[in-house]
């Protein structure tokens, strides 16, 4: 908080005496300003709490009927009234994991280049461009996914993957285009800017003496980067990865457009699947009956809780990194 001298008589205004001083002459403007900003701040807290409360209350029907089985059941049958979240949880986890698998090496590589090798000016402008990637609306990623990426994967990438890794179960089966694989690739592009820009910042904040110490011992620049700079910044980098993960888990539109929207669990990445956010987006407006709606809301609750935890971890790591001095 920015500090101010109190403008009231210091003797007559004991600590915590704000409420009592309300309507004191000359203090009215002061108190109104305080109250207005306090109410706004409290509203933020209330909205956040209300989101959790609503998800919890509105999912009561489904929670009471299915209990924890909801999370481990494979069936999603609106007609029979049987709802299980497993195919969606599976699809969400698989696509997010795949996106991290692609985005971490590429993102970290870019961050290292931008922080360690590129001159500061070049690095700043390139980073600005990469951050623009984060500004591209997700529905546009979906659009590109459907019309560009999927045909490209089908024509160029998947045949090669099958030829080389076809013995692995994750690359077997027919590829229709829409799939876990496509969704994971689109997500990787979407989360890349988060990893690059946060990691670059953390790397830049590593003190110069750390680098000098390693160079003075005869380390090459790459050895210095890989064995000294990156480990020093690791907590911050992990934080950026968790932020990206939370984003990938909650991403709706792009995934909905390329995942195939089929509630099944398949080992093959080339098979169509479904994600939590996608099923909510597709079925919420059409859902009839309180059990169906309530089940969809419970999926929202699951998503909320998971992203809450992941974001919390990301914050903890970035906080720890800044406390350790690795991140300014």
């Amino acid at each position: 908080m920015a500090t101010y001298p109190s403008t009231a008589n210091s003797r007559a205004l004991p600590p915590g005496g704000r409420a009592r001083s309300f309507l004191r002459r000359g203090q009215v403007g002061e108190d109104v300003a305080y109250l207005v900003t306090l109410v706004a701040a409290a509203t933020i807290f209330l909205i956040t709490s209300l989101i959790f409360y609503e998800l919890f209350v509105q999912s009561a029907v489904s929670r009471q009927k299915f209990g924890f089985h909801f999370l481990f059941t494979q069936t999603w049958d609106p007609i029979a009234g049987n709802f299980g979240a497993l195919p969606f949880i599976y699809g969400t986890v698989v696509t997010a994991a795949l996106s991290l698998l692609i985005a971490i090496p590429q993102g970290l590589g870019s961050a290292i280049f931008l922080a360690e090798l590129a001159p500061r000016r070049v690095s700043d402008s390139l980073t600005f461009l990469i951050e623009l990637l984060a500004a591209v609306p997700s529905v546009i990623y979906g659009l590109l996914g459907i019309f560009i990426l999927v045909p490209f994967l089908q024509a160029r990438v998947v045949p090669v993957l099958k030829a080389v890794f076809g013995f692995l179960p994750i690359f077997q089966g027919v590829f229709y285009g829409v799939s876990y694989f496509s969704a994971g690739v689109v997500l990787s592009v979407m989360i890349m800017p988060f990893i690059v820009s946060v990691s670059r910042e953390v790397l830049l904040a590593v003190p110069k003496d750390q680098r000098e110490a390693s160079l003075a011992l005869g380390g090459s620049r790459w050895q210095t980067t890989w064995h000294v700079v990156v480990p020093y910044a690791l907590k911050g980098i992990m934080g950026s990865i968790f932020l990206a993960l939370a984003r990938a888990l909650g991403e709706t539109m792009a995934v909905t457009m390329v995942i195939g929207n089929t509630p099944q669990i398949k080992a093959s990445l080339l098979a169509p699947g479904y994600s939590i956010a996608a099923v909510i987006a597709n079925e919420f407006t059409e859902a009839v009956g309180s059990l169906y709606i309530s089940s969809l809301i419970e999926l929202g609750l699951v998503l909320f809780v998971v992203t809450f935890i992941i974001n919390g971890l990301a914050r903890l790591m970035i906080m720890a990194a800044s406390r350790g001095g690795a991140h300014s």
Binding site: T3, T7, N9
Partner: peptide, 24 residues
């Protein structure tokens, strides 16, 4: 009074008026 936890004791008088009792 800008600083939290700062405390002043004694009297300071401006033209016979205690500044601590004045409107700041």
């Amino acid at each position: 009074e800008t600083i939290r936890g700062a405390r002043l004791e004694g009297t300071i008088v401006l033209d016979n008026e205690n500044i601590l009792a004045m409107n700041a």
